[in-house]
């Protein structure tokens, strides 16, 4: 065991650059990266740690297992694209296709026009965008109050916020459906947007971030200067909170994009979100598997692009939110 440890220490000493590379890259001031950002610091103490668990270099087996799971994570997505680029007949043959065909564009066009995917994408952008903005603003306001302001019943109210996470969405669909019927909002986007405008997770997330990131002296100094509380929010809280707001916005956008149960009930195929349109496809609205796959691919593509661009921040945000008090 000891020998193995020595060998690994040596390897590290020979190739310090690529190993500190990811750690340094994570040191960017994005909020979610607190937990991983510490790695840079840890690298320095590694020598002392010898064979202590996390400091060991990953062996070949580790890379093999991780690669296997990487493959498993990506395969269904890649195969969606492969199936979307074939035709229905080819999907009803064995062996199943393993490489791309030439039908991707025609299938996507069919899905866009016949399955209403074009309108669905636009609608989903509106819903997820509105929900993300409102959730972030309201969560920052409440998170700031819970983190930095003193008021009566603060802790009890914060516990209430956390408790509301236990209430499952199934408990609201029947009354919401009744309300929508009464207001004649069926098939209108606000029926889907309004119930999602705030999030308890968001409040808690912003509170956890602002407790440490926002210096109390800064607020007090502004107050001493006679700044109104809205001025404090605008000029101090929002700028400090901006990185966390961005991460929360992305997480909320993903969640709202994939919201399923209530939209399926509130909307129809005439004015769908992506998930509603895909449900239509899945229920045999269009009996062509390759078109169904093209729809699924289209509906996922925007989020995949977002992940390619901001994956690091989203990962950081989830890890940040995970460290519960």
């Amino acid at each position: 065991m000891r020998e193995v440890g020595t060998v690994q220490t040596d390897t590290r000493d020979q190739t310090p650059e690529p190993l500190t590379g990811p750690g340094a890259a994570q040191g960017a001031p994005a909020p979610g990266e607190g937990p991983s950002g510490g790695r840079g610091g840890r690298t320095a103490t590694t020598k002392r740690a010898g064979t202590a668990g996390r400091h060991l270099h990953a062996g070949r087996l580790t890379y093999a297992v991780l690669s296997l799971f990487t493959l498993g994570s990506l395969f269904p997505l890649v195969w969606t694209a492969i199936a979307a680029s074939r035709d229905n007949q080819r999907l009803a043959e064995t062996p199943p296709p393993f490489w791309f065909g030439s039908n991707l564009i025609p299938n996507m066009t069919t899905a866009w026009n016949d399955a209403n995917m074009g309108k669905a994408l636009l609608n989903t952008f509106v819903v997820a965008g509105t929900v993300a903005v409102s959730t972030v603003v309201f969560a920052t306001l409440a998170g700031y109050a819970f983190a930095k302001l003193r008021f009566r019943a603060r802790n009890a109210l914060l516990l209430t916020v956390i408790g509301t996470m236990m209430v499952p969405p199934q408990l609201s669909v029947v009354p919401l459906y009744m309300a929508v019927a009464k207001l004649e909002w069926a098939n209108q986007l606000q029926a889907v947007i309004l119930p999602l405008m705030v999030s308890a997770f968001g409040v808690f997330f912003m509170r956890q971030y602002l407790v440490n990131a926002l210096p109390t002296e800064l607020i007090e100094a502004a107050r001493v200067d006679g700044a109104h509380s809205l001025r404090v929010v605008w000029h101090i809280v929002f700028p400090v909170a901006r990185p966390a707001m961005a991460v929360l916005g992305m997480l909320t956008f993903v969640m709202a994009w994939n919201e399923f149960f209530w939209p399926v009930i509130a909307l129809t195929q005439d004015n769908p979100t992506v998930q509603v349109a895909l449900t239509g496809l899945g229920r045999g609205y269009i009996p062509d598997e390759s078109v169904i796959m093209a729809g699924a691919f289209l509906g996922t593509l925007p989020l995949l692009i977002a992940f390619a661009l901001f994956g690091k921040q989203i990962v950081g945000g989830i890890m940040q939110g995970a460290v519960k008090g």
Binding site: P76, L77, V254, L278, L281, G282, M293, T300, F307, G311
Partner: peptide
């Protein structure tokens, strides 16, 4: 490993 999380229930189930 997080990309499946970005895939909606609907898209994932259809595949």
């Amino acid at each position: 490993m997080l990309t499946p999380y970005a895939t909606s229930v609907a898209a994932a189930t259809l595949v």
